[in-house]
Each structure stands twice: as structure tokens, then as C-alpha cells.
Design a protein around this nucleic acid. Sequence first.
DNA 1: GGGAACCATTTTGTTAACAATCGTGTCAAC
DNA 2: GTTGACACGATTGTTAACAAAATGGTTCCC
Lengths: 234, 234
Amino acid sequence: MFANETLPEGGRPEPTEAEIVDQIFDAVIDQRLPPGAKLSESALCEAFGVGRMRIRRSLLLLASRQVVDLQSNRGAFVASPTAAEAQEVFESRLMIEPNVAMLAAERATETDVAMLGAHLEKEHHAHRSDNRHEAIRLSGQFHVVLARIAANRVMERMVKELVTRTSLIIGIFGAPGTDNCRDDDHSLILEALRAKDAAAASRLMSEHIGHIQTNLDLSKGRPSTVDLVKLFAS
Amino acid sequence: MFANETLPEGGRPEPTEAEIVDQIFDAVIDQRLPPGAKLSESALCEAFGVGRMRIRRSLLLLASRQVVDLQSNRGAFVASPTAAEAQEVFESRLMIEPNVAMLAAERATETDVAMLGAHLEKEHHAHRSDNRHEAIRLSGQFHVVLARIAANRVMERMVKELVTRTSLIIGIFGAPGTDNCRDDDHSLILEALRAKDAAAASRLMSEHIGHIQTNLDLSKGRPSTVDLVKLFAS
DNA sequence: GGGAACCATTTTGTTAACAATCGTGTCAAC
DNA sequence: GTTGACACGATTGTTAACAAAATGGTTCCC
């Protein structure tokens, strides 16, 4: 009679922890959830329609991937990477993603290339129609799709985490107007995949990450604990 | 009166989740916990002297790092990587660790080199005294220490996870007698660090991981679900 | 008027009891 | 003697009530 027993009443089928985590990841990537945002348990319970236990597990998983900051007796907050952490994230991306792009170029089937092409098309479309959140989300997702083409789940998880943290970093250290990924770079990488040119894919990815980093000002940062002193001086 | 309120009675000061996770990591690395071992909640509660809640959180964290396998309504088991997963782990290590070694060579202070030297000395000692578990543990730890010298926490966490999973892989696919890391390789890497030769450190690490992989037979593996069919055919 | 202490409310953390599921052993039937 | 079903025990999963901590507002004192 009922398609799913766990439907309370015409609602949705009770998201699992992984789904909750993914949704929060996406919200962080496209900057609907800014760094420092409070993630109160009760609000999340209502938002996802699940019990507190599941929310707490999800928050723990998010914390284990450095996307949320779990403060004792205070609650969960979207992480606010420091300049030092930002440095580490980009350093890691520069270590990992060129190799991922290389692998992807070696392993991409025609189907993969077509899929990535379609993804890029959506990216362009979102850009043209000024759909900012969608554009940012797809732009980050591009890197994850590439990792999926490389067919290495370890790398895929890693890239997803790093892309998400990069969104937070851009939110803190980025110039307000600039995009995080210029999609021209993505187009070039797609071409390298299409040509099965692994070396080019690797090089282009290095440059691409360099471009992202260029648009940041890691010195501006967010108040560390001493900011109050500066404020007091003025 | 009492040094710590949370001492039940002369016991230890209630390990935190991170400590429990670390201890289980260590036990997996030095193969005291073999792949597939059952990790029952009650046993762990008793072992660590903590409540069930903390154990469950720890298991969730371990599962999120692919070190334990959480099966619904059945319990937690130490992970048993498949051949495909093993392939992904080594692929990832080959992407990451040469770069980590490179960074470490660039950034190692004299103190770092001395510390790593001391670590290697302990490694040799454990080998000479046939302390198998200690030798394996230190051997794996070497890679983590290197990542710490590279001063990148993202990479450090990653390396720790990959080293741990490698121990499981060796437990499944490795020849029983062989060591996972030949410490000669480690000595060479230390020399590269001492000489601040980043390129050599990177190359040596690549070769080293290749050596580990050489001692595996990814075809032997453990029965997948289809084994019954093969058995039936014979 | 400003500041500090106090109390109330809200939110998080923990504990314990309950429910559900799985594995195992037993018993009966074929 | 083997196979199937059944029931028991043990272990995991969930829920709900409780305890503790922090935030915010109020009041009192200086």
C-alpha cells in the first residue's frame, strides 16, 4: 500500500546520515552556509525531519572532516579556517589534484568525457543566468566529478573535503566579487581529458589551483583572539 | 583530595574519543587487530572503561576513516579491504607521500632530523630484538612522523589513515613472513632529509611504496561472495 | 549611569531503559 | 540423519527523560 513504511505522513523518506552530511557539504560549498554559522541541533532536526541522535552523528561526521567545528557545551559551527589552515588546504590540493587530473585523463571513457562536458555546460549556463549559488556549487563539483572519473574513492573523498574547505576559505579570505573557479580553466582541463593528455591535465590543474589561490588575501583574515585589542586601540 | 574527579577508583582518567580512536588505530597498524575482527561495544566499554555512547562515537569516527566496517544491526568489524580498495590505497599513497617527503625535506629543521633519527634507531632496535608488533608500529609511524615534519595536518591525517589501511592490506594480501617496510628505505629517506634533497626524498619515497606493493599478491585475496560458485564448480 | 552578580531559559551532553534485530541452539518432522 | 521452523539469548539501535552548561536578561549595588 505504502511505498515506504518510514514515511510519517506524506513527507520525505527520512534522510540517512550520509545524505544529511552531503546536503550540508553542498550548502557549505555554494556558500549558503557561511563560516561560523551556528548549526543548532533542534533547527537541524526540524530541517531534516529526523531525531536528535541522527543529527548528532551527522555533526560528528562533519567535524571529523573539518567542515564543522564542534565546541564543547556550545554547539556546532561551520568551520572558519585560519590562514594557516588555508595554506595547508591549498598545499594539499596542489599535491593531490594534479595527480587526480592525470589519472582522470588516463582513464576517462567517452562516456566520462561526455558527462563532464554536460557538467561544464550546466556550469556555463548557471554563470550566464547569474545563478550564483548554482554556479559555485557546480564549479566545486567539477573537481569531485574529476576525482570520480579517476576512479579512486580515497581521492574522491579527499577532494570533496578539500573543495568544501576551499569554499569556506574563499568566504573568509576571498574578494567579495570574484568567482572561486574560472570556468575557462575547467574547459581547458576537459579538453586535456578529451585528448587523453595526462601531462597537460596535470599541469592545467596545477595552474588552475594557483589561480584560485591568487584571488585570496590570506593576510586579511578573520579576527583572531587579539582583534579586540586592535579595536580597543582605535 | 583526589587528583581527578573522574577517576572511578584508582583507574585511568577516562580516555576521550580521540584517544580511543588513536589506540585502535595503533592496534590495527601493528596488526594486533586483524582484518575482520569483531569490535563489540560491551567489550570496548570494558576495555577502555567508558560508557557505550563514547564507544559508539569512536566507532563512527573509525568508520568514517574506513578503518572499521559498521554493519547495520550486526556490529563493528575491523575493515577488510578488497583488492580494488588496496589498489586505490596504494595509488593514493603514491600520489601523496612522495610530495609529503619532498615537503618534509624542504622544511625539516635539525631538531626534526634528530627526532627522525631517534625514531629510526628505535625501529632498528625493535627489529633486532624481534619485537614484531613494535617494529611494525614504528615502521608505520615513520610515515606519519614524516608528514608531521612536512607540517601539514591535512596530509598528516591522510597519511595516518592510509598507513593504517595498508596494515590491513598487508594482513590480507601480504606474504606471512615479510615485513611491510624495509627499514633500509627509511634510512635512505632520512639521509635525503638530512641533505635537504627534496627531489631525492620524493623519489625514494616512491620507490619505497613500490617496494611495499611488490610484496603483495592482490590476486590471492579473501573469498568474495562468489566463492561458493567456484567451490560448487569443483 | 555603568557594572557586576544573579536567575531563568535555552541548548547541549549523558544516562538509562526500551525496542528491534540477528545469531544460535533446540526440537520436531520428514 | 538431515532439514526446517521455532524460540531463546545476546547485541545493537532508538527513544526519552534527566543533568549540566552557557547565553541572555534583569536587578541590585556602587
